[in-house]
Computed example of a mutant assay.
Amino acid sequence: MKKIKTLGIIGVGLIGGSFALALKRQGLVEKVLGAGKDDNSLGLAKALGIIDEVVTIAEMATLADVIVIAAPVNAFEGIANVLAPLLPANTIVSDVGSTKAKIIEIARKVFDNKIHQFIPAHPIAGSHASGPTAAISDLFQDKNVIITPLPENSSESVALIQSLWESCGATVQLLKQAKDHDDIYAAVSHFPHFLAACYMSFMESDPIRKQALNMGGTGFRDFTRIAAGSPEMWRDIFLSNQEAMLSQMRDFEKEFNYFKQLLENKDAEQLYQWLSVAAKARQNWKVIKN
């Protein structure tokens, strides 16, 4: 693919930083600009070679050919408000947000007649670590990236964003309906994080359970790992995907109450059947290669 002269990253943390490093490794970008709210973090990103220059968001709007907003979802509107009036006609803006319907709603309002320049995207990759020191060039290798193109987007713009992610080693899938995206990832990403965080909060709420944290093994480690993620990021994800999250919670409550009833009734046969279905579902799941 054609090399990008100037790439702009707003929010140079795990995702934004890893995206920049991957494209640098492939020799597909000549210069990377970084912007964000934390000067110390940006300085560290430059020292680590993730970005080449620190700029303001307004400066980035006029200097970059492709801009990726990798800041928390709640910051999107403020960033878009700065970018929108300054964007040259050929500049493409994308994002990495875990929710799409709310982001697209905001983007339509803010970018207005420049909405065709915004390509919504969501890389399915992450870590409990955050910040520029967590960025690695192969984070997206063999991972999924979902692009939810808008009717106004040109095929050339979508193809460019797709090719950038594929150059990072990702498998790109196009999903036309933003609501479908949000419902899917509420189920397989956002709600599991809620469960892990809820469990850790539960353990911290009682002295005996808190003491038990020192006695956990590998199962405890694997189940709770994602609860260590950025509170700011996950707060924004939950709020921006509120409807789908509440739907998952209502459905899960039925499952929880069903299990509770089986346990109260000491129904060994149905408990076994219930656990067997869950075990088989997990065994049959096709795990994405790390």
Rank of each mutant, 00 (worst) to 15 (best):
K2C: 03
K2T: 07
K3I: 14
I4W: 02
I9F: 05
G11T: 12
G13L: 05
L14N: 10
L14E: 07
G17M: 07
A20V: 02
L21P: 00
L23S: 01
K24R: 12
K24I: 11
R25P: 02
K31N: 06
G34W: 00
G36L: 00
L44N: 06
A45Q: 03
A47M: 06
V54M: 11
V54A: 13
V55D: 04
T62A: 14
I67S: 03
V68G: 00
I69T: 04
A75W: 09
F76K: 01
F76S: 10
F76L: 04
I79T: 00
I79L: 05
V82I: 14
L83G: 00
P85C: 01
P85W: 08
L86E: 09
T91H: 03
V93M: 07
D95L: 06
S98T: 08
K100N: 01
A101D: 04
K102F: 10
E105Y: 09
P120L: 02
A121Q: 09
H122V: 04
I124M: 14
G126N: 07
H128M: 10
A129V: 06
S130W: 01
A135E: 07
I136Y: 04
Q141I: 08
D142A: 14
I146C: 03
P149H: 06
L150G: 12
L150E: 06
S154V: 15
S157R: 07
V158R: 07
Q162S: 12
Q162C: 07
S163K: 04
W165K: 03
W165N: 01
E166T: 07
G169E: 00
G169M: 05
G169T: 03
A170S: 11
T171N: 12
L175Q: 01
A178M: 03
K179E: 00
H181M: 01
D182A: 03
D182W: 00
D182M: 02
D182G: 08
I184E: 00
V188R: 12
F191D: 02
A196C: 08
C198T: 15
F202V: 13
S205R: 07
D206N: 08
P207R: 05
I208V: 06
N214H: 10
M215F: 12
G216P: 03
G217H: 14
R221N: 05
T224W: 04
A227R: 08
A228E: 11
S230K: 04
E232V: 15
D236R: 11
L239Y: 13
Q248G: 06
M249A: 09
M249P: 03
F252M: 08
E253Q: 13
Y258H: 12
F259L: 15
K260M: 11
K260I: 11
L263K: 14
L263C: 09
N265V: 03
A268H: 11
W274C: 05
W274T: 08
V277L: 15
V277Y: 05
A279T: 14
K280C: 12
R282Q: 12
Q283N: 15
V287A: 15
K289I: 09
N290H: 12
